[in-house]
Design a protein around this nucleic acid. Structure first.
Lengths: 201, 201
DNA sequence: GCGTTCATGTAACCTGTTACATGATTCT
DNA sequence: AGAATCATGTAACAGGTTACATGAACGC
């Protein structure tokens, strides 16, 4: 709790603020709506739920079931709600734009340009797919306008914009880094392995 | 090395592929160009450089200096270059859109809406600032067109698009979540702390 | 018979942050 | 006199991934 935000902790609390859930339910939620923005494995979720319980932000009750394994249902406490509320009052920092592409672009001379182009094509497809999945989700909320419906639509819009921009960008990058385009660039001495001294220009 | 990509390891190798550097130099690079996309503290960089040395992807030489502490210069090896090249051949997954806003939007009923609006205003300013910083950097590269110049411009463009979209989105969210707009939404019973039963509308 | 869904957990490991620790030189 | 820059590291902790481990019910 030293650092300000970043938190699976609060993400789980948000999920529980909707209603009591098992670790398994939370994991499923992460595979759906929330998971568009944040994924977590069940191993992490169970560990985190245990910590939330230590802090008394949630309570748990074991529920016996027939024909299925017993389950442990977690419920947010008043302290938990308060913690969640306080968290939302803190200023939040935008995320870093961490992407392997951006690092590779820093020195295209040192990487496999042909593979880079192939990866661009793969990513173009994947961003297109994600774009349509966001749009579909968005359309399911059409006409619904409770406060959290409006919120969820706004969240999905971030995803839609993000995927749209990546899609456009991938196309543009593919053009600019096509073999033809690259051949026309001004050449610079590539730093190769030792023993090669090539003075160019 | 089990998981496919994600890596400070390779980011440092990219930095060293440009030329030999000390840990301090790498840290400075992270505070400038590369740092637009990925930050790392010196503590992490030194630890990672030690690991790279263990793997023999880099070598180090201590350089004595007068008037300054001695420094340790790291140089990428042929194995290191090969590892970097192989990394660039692997398919890369897009990053998650992890942002506190997106989690809070999932259940606006459970958070402090007034604080949320204030945070939106802060973020609007910060995205505007970042946007202009990316543009400035971009303009510094005008006219330069070696392969990595083109690459760096493409990378900056991702940043420019990202910040532009966030800026637009924050303005839009501020409108949609203004007190007036929220008052017009269909009301849903907010889940409050126990003991409060408020039938509203 | 095989895969999926339900259901919960542990252990080892890697990544990333904060704080601690030191110390000389140069600029204001 | 005090701050910034150069320079390198360690330790503790938090966050996240992968793999291991178990086991019943249900549909194909």
């Amino acid at each position: 709790m030293k650092g300000i935000n970043l938190s699976l902790k609060y993400t789980i609390l948000v999920a529980l603020s909707e209603g009591p859930k098992t670790g398994y339910d939370v994991a499923k939620l992460f595979d759906k709506t929330i998971g568009f923005f944040w994924r977590a494995r069940h191993s992490q979720i169970y560990r985190e739920l245990a910590k939330l319980k230590d802090r008394q932000w949630v309570t748990s009750q074991e529920v016996e079931q027939s024909g299925k394994p017993n389950k442990v249902v977690f419920t947010i406490t008043d302290e938990g709600r308060e913690a969640l509320f306080n968290w939302s009052r803190e200023p939040n920092e935008p995320q870093e734009l961490k992407d392997d592409f951006l690092i590779q672009l820093y020195r295209l001379e040192s990487i496999d340009l042909e593979a880079f182009r192939e990866n661009l094509m793969l990513r173009l497809e994947s961003h297109r797919d994600r774009h349509s999945r966001y749009i579909e989700k968005y359309e399911l909320l059409a006409g619904k306008d409770s406060l959290s419906d409006v919120g969820q639509k706004l969240a999905l819009e971030v995803g839609i914009r993000w995927e749209r921009e990546w899609t456009d960008w991938c196309s543009k990058a593919l053009e600019q880094l096509s073999p033809d385009a690259v051949a026309k660039l001004s050449n610079v001495v590539p730093i190769k392995s030792e023993g090669e001294k090539n003075a160019e220009r």
